[in-house]
Amino acid sequence: MSAPISRCSQHMPLIYVWAEGAGELSHVDATVRKLMDTLRGEGRQWNPYSEAIAREEFRQRLLAAEQGDLIPVDEVIRLVTGEDGWLYEIRWQDISVRRVMADGNVEYYDAQVRALHGEPPRLPQHLIGVHAHEKLHWDGDDEKTEDEQNAQIRLAVRKFWAYEPSNWGLA
Rank of each mutant, 00 (worst) to 15 (best):
H126G: 02
V157S: 02
W168P: 00
Y109K: 13
N105L: 05
I128C: 07
D69R: 05
Y108M: 11
A115M: 08
D110R: 09
W138R: 11
R122K: 12
P120D: 08
D84M: 08
W92M: 11
G169F: 08
V100P: 10
G118E: 02
I153Q: 04
P72H: 04
E89I: 02
Q93V: 05
S96E: 09
R114L: 13
E164T: 03
P165H: 09
L127C: 04
E143R: 15
A162Q: 07
W161A: 04
G140D: 10
D94K: 13
V157T: 01
I77M: 03
E146I: 13
E146L: 12
P121L: 11
E75D: 13
Y163I: 00
D147C: 03
G129C: 04
R122V: 14
E143P: 09
E143I: 15
V106M: 11
R55K: 15
K135E: 12
R122M: 12
Q60F: 09
E119Y: 04
A156N: 05
T81K: 07
W138E: 15
D103S: 00
D110L: 09
I53L: 14
G129E: 04
G104C: 03
H117N: 03
E83V: 10
D142E: 14
A65T: 01
Y88N: 03
A151V: 01
Q149P: 01
Y109G: 10
G118A: 13
N150G: 06
D69I: 13
N167T: 15
D147L: 07
I128R: 07
Q149E: 04
I95D: 05
A151L: 05
D74N: 12
L79F: 06
D69P: 00
Q125Y: 12
G104Q: 02
L155N: 08
Y163P: 02
D141A: 03
D142K: 15
S96C: 07
N167D: 15
E148H: 10
R154Q: 11
Q67F: 00
W161S: 06
Q60E: 15
V73G: 00
I128D: 02
V80T: 08
V113I: 10
Y88G: 00
E56C: 01
Y109Q: 11
Q67K: 11
Y88E: 04
V100E: 12
Q60P: 08
W86Y: 09
L63C: 15
F58N: 12
L136D: 13
G68V: 15
R61S: 12
S96I: 01
D139Y: 12
A132F: 12
I153W: 03
V76S: 02
E148A: 09
N150P: 07
W86I: 00
H131K: 14
D147G: 02
L127N: 03
H126T: 09
L123V: 00
V106I: 14
L127K: 02
I153R: 04
L155M: 08
L127F: 06
M101G: 07
Y163G: 02
E164V: 02
A54W: 01
K159W: 05
E66F: 14
A156I: 04
R59Y: 06
R98G: 01
I90G: 01
E83L: 10
L70M: 09
A111R: 10
E56W: 01
A111Q: 12
G129I: 00
Y163M: 03
S96F: 04
A111M: 10
M101I: 07
K159R: 14
D74M: 11
V157H: 04
L63G: 15
G129R: 03
S96L: 06
G85I: 00
F58V: 14
W138D: 15
A162E: 04
Q125T: 11
W168D: 01
L123Y: 13
Q60Y: 10
